[in-house]
Amino acid sequence: MGKRKLHDTTYFQCDWTGLPMRTTNCYMPDWHETTGKLLKHGSYCCWEAVVAHMIEQYFTDHPKWKRIMDHITELVGTSVSAAPHWKRLRWMQYGKESRGELSTIDSANEFLAEVQMGMCPFAAVVVNSSGDASEVHCYGSDVAHRFGPKLQTPKQAQNMPEHEPQSFITARKKLGKDRDLVAFYWPFKNGLPYNSTVSNLLKTQIYGDVIFVQQTREACFLPRERFINFTLTQYNEHFTNKTRRKDGASMLSSAEWGAAKEQMQAELQQVEAAASSNAVLPGEIAKASVLPPPTGKELARIARARADEEWVRPLLESGELRLY
Score class of each variant (00 low, 15 high):
L315G: 13
G191A: 09
L315T: 13
S318T: 11
S167G: 06
R172N: 08
T24L: 13
P223M: 03
K261Y: 13
I105C: 00
E272M: 01
S250A: 12
S253Y: 11
Q215Y: 04
T243S: 14
L112P: 09
A300T: 05
R172I: 01
Q116A: 15
H53G: 04
L201M: 08
S276C: 14
P149N: 11
L315F: 08
A279M: 09
I302K: 15
H32E: 13
S277H: 10
V213F: 06
F12G: 01
L6W: 02
G191M: 02
S167V: 06
H7R: 14
Q152Y: 04
R146H: 05
W311G: 11
L268H: 02
T153Q: 15
I55T: 01
H71M: 10
M54C: 04
C120W: 00
C138N: 12
G95R: 13
W16V: 08
F147M: 14
I169A: 05
W31A: 13
S196L: 06
T197H: 00
D30F: 02
V51I: 13
M21Q: 14
E110Q: 14
K87T: 00
R146W: 03
E272I: 10
A307C: 08
K246R: 15
G131V: 06
K203A: 01
C45P: 00
L299W: 08
P63E: 10
T295G: 05
L38W: 15
F227D: 00
T243N: 14
R224H: 11
S276F: 10
P154F: 03
T170Q: 04
A273R: 04
H85V: 06
W311H: 10
C120D: 11
D106V: 11
N109M: 14
T10W: 03
E298S: 11
D8V: 07
P20S: 13
E97F: 12
D180R: 00
E101Y: 03
A124C: 15
A266I: 11
T34D: 07
A219N: 05
A275L: 10
R99Q: 09
Y194W: 13
C138D: 08
S134G: 11
F212E: 01
V290W: 00
R146D: 04
D15M: 02
S98M: 03
F230A: 01
P154Q: 05
F147N: 02
Q57H: 07
P63R: 02
P149K: 09
K64P: 03
S277T: 12
I228H: 04
F184E: 00
I68L: 07
R226S: 10
F188P: 03
R301P: 00
A108C: 05
G42A: 07
K173M: 03
E267P: 10
N109T: 05
Q263C: 13
R226K: 14
